[in-house]
Amino acid sequence: MKKDKRMFLRVRPSVLAEIRAYGEKHDRMTARSVILSGLAALGIPVPEAARLGVRKMRTGAQDASEQEDKECVSFSVLLPESVWRHLSLRAAREMKQKRTIILEGLSALGLKISDDMKADISRLEKE
Rank of each mutant, 00 (worst) to 15 (best):
M1P: 03
M1H: 06
K2P: 15
K2L: 07
K3C: 06
R6G: 03
R12M: 06
R12H: 10
S14P: 00
V15E: 05
L16E: 09
E18C: 08
E18Y: 08
I19K: 05
G23M: 04
E24F: 07
K25G: 07
H26C: 08
H26A: 08
H26T: 13
R28K: 15
M29T: 03
M29C: 07
T30P: 01
V34N: 02
L36I: 08
L36D: 03
L36Y: 03
L36F: 06
S37C: 12
S37K: 15
S37H: 12
A40E: 09
A41M: 08
L42W: 02
G43K: 08
I44P: 01
P45W: 08
V46Y: 01
E48L: 12
A49D: 14
A50L: 09
R51L: 14
L52S: 10
L52K: 14
V54E: 14
R55M: 13
R55L: 12
M57Q: 11
T59E: 13
G60D: 00
A61C: 07
A64R: 14
S65D: 09
Q67Y: 12
Q67S: 08
D69Q: 13
E71L: 11
F75G: 02
S76C: 06
V77G: 07
L78H: 13
L79T: 02
P80S: 09
S82V: 14
V83A: 04
W84S: 12
R85L: 09
R85Q: 13
H86Y: 07
L87M: 00
L87P: 00
L87G: 01
S88L: 11
S88C: 08
R90W: 02
R90K: 13
A91P: 01
E94Y: 04
M95E: 14
K96E: 06
K98W: 05
R99I: 04
T100M: 10
T100Y: 07
T100G: 05
T100W: 07
I102S: 02
L103A: 12
E104D: 15
S107A: 15
S107N: 13
A108P: 04
A108I: 02
A108H: 05
A108M: 04
L109D: 03
L111Q: 08
L111F: 09
I113E: 02
D115L: 13
M117I: 11
M117D: 15
S122D: 13
R123A: 11
L124Q: 13
L124F: 11
L124H: 15
E125C: 05
E125M: 11
K126F: 06
E127R: 14
